[in-house]
């Protein structure tokens, strides 16, 4: 059983890491989680980002957060990526597979996946 003792062991291992994480987050991935986002499939998208960032060992520099409706419901699930130096990138009609691709190409590789951006969808 995943006991509270086990949780204590995880805590002991994490203590130093957390201070680092809260101070050095430079990239933010924001997933829209209002009714429109949830109905369009935002939950698995959020989960794919949370797990993918952790698996990639990027938890120290990348934060995954949630937000409400940003007013472009027809494009949900919507994900915004804020990086330190570049302009905000808005990805639309997201899926868990697209999330993995964005972690690989954009978050790790620094290259925006243009075909999934709102600019491409509006054309």
């Amino acid at each position: 059983m995943k006991s509270l003792e086990e949780l204590m062991a995880i805590k002991a291992k994490m203590q130093d890491k957390v201070a680092l994480r809260t101070s050095s987050g430079t990239t933010r991935i924001v997933v829209g989680m209002a009714t429109c986002g949830i109905a369009a499939g935002a939950r698995p998208v959020l989960n794919a980002f949370v797990e993918g960032i952790s698996e990639a060992g990027l938890s120290d520099s990348v934060m995954v957060t949630q937000t409400g409706c940003i007013g472009i419901c027809q494009y949900e699930p919507v994900v915004e990526v804020y990086t330190k130096d570049a302009e905000k990138v808005t990805y639309v009609k997201m899926t868990a597979d697209r999330a993995k691709e964005i972690i690989e190409k954009h978050i790790k590789g620094g290259k925006v996946v243009t075909e999934y951006t709102i600019g491409a969808a509006k054309k």
């Binding site: 995880i10 805590k11 994490m14 203590q15 957390v18 994480r21 960032i53 952790s54 938890s59």
Partner: peptide, 10 residues
């Protein structure tokens, strides 16, 4: 304690 609950390990 003060470790946030939204850490991936947690």
């Amino acid at each position: 304690g003060d470790i946030p609950l939204n850490q991936p390990e947690i």
